[in-house]
């Protein structure tokens, strides 16, 4: 019927573009970090959608199920993009935490988090 892959590829692309627009045009630096987070989410959805198989099941074997192991293996979703995204989510959180700490220090020094108030940044 409806191709789930196509819907989710478009959604992830729209999320990436929205986040990119936010990074380019917002003046409040915290909102720039929020937009960066949205880009991160879009990229993760894109990566996991690469491995989707029609009517696929989760890539976990069940030892005491009625179906045989080979039968379970033939219906699984691709596990390789999922392991990459597992790493990417954790590292994305690390980036967000360090960026926000930098913003907190910036506020202590300059008293503002708006790009237009900081000298040297002409945007």
């Amino acid at each position: 019927m409806i191709s789930i892959s196509a819907v989710l590829y478009s959604t992830s692309l729209i999320l990436i573009l929205l986040g990119l627009y936010g990074v380019l045009t917002r003046k409040n630096l915290i909102r720039v970090v929020i937009s960066l987070d949205v880009v991160d989410l879009g990229v993760n959805i894109f990566l996991v959608t690469i491995g989707y198989v029609r009517d696929g099941r989760a890539p976990i074997y069940l030892a005491d199920a009625q179906t045989s192991l080979a039968d379970q293996a033939s219906r699984m979703v691709d596990p390789l993009p999922q392991s990459l995204v597992l790493t990417a989510i954790v590292i994305g959180f690390g980036v967000t935490a360090v960026a926000l700490t930098l913003l907190m220090r910036l506020y202590e020094r300059k008293g503002t988090v708006m790009v237009s108030d900081l000298r040297g940044l002409k945007w």
């Binding site: 789930i4 989710l8 993760n44 996991v48 959608t49 491995g51 989707y52 696929g56 099941r57 989760a58 890539p59 976990i60 979703v77 999922q82 995204v85 597992l86 989510i89």
Partner: peptide, 8 residues
Amino acid sequence: LLLAAPDV
């Protein structure tokens, strides 16, 4: 979850 990726 809809993409059958419970770990993620």
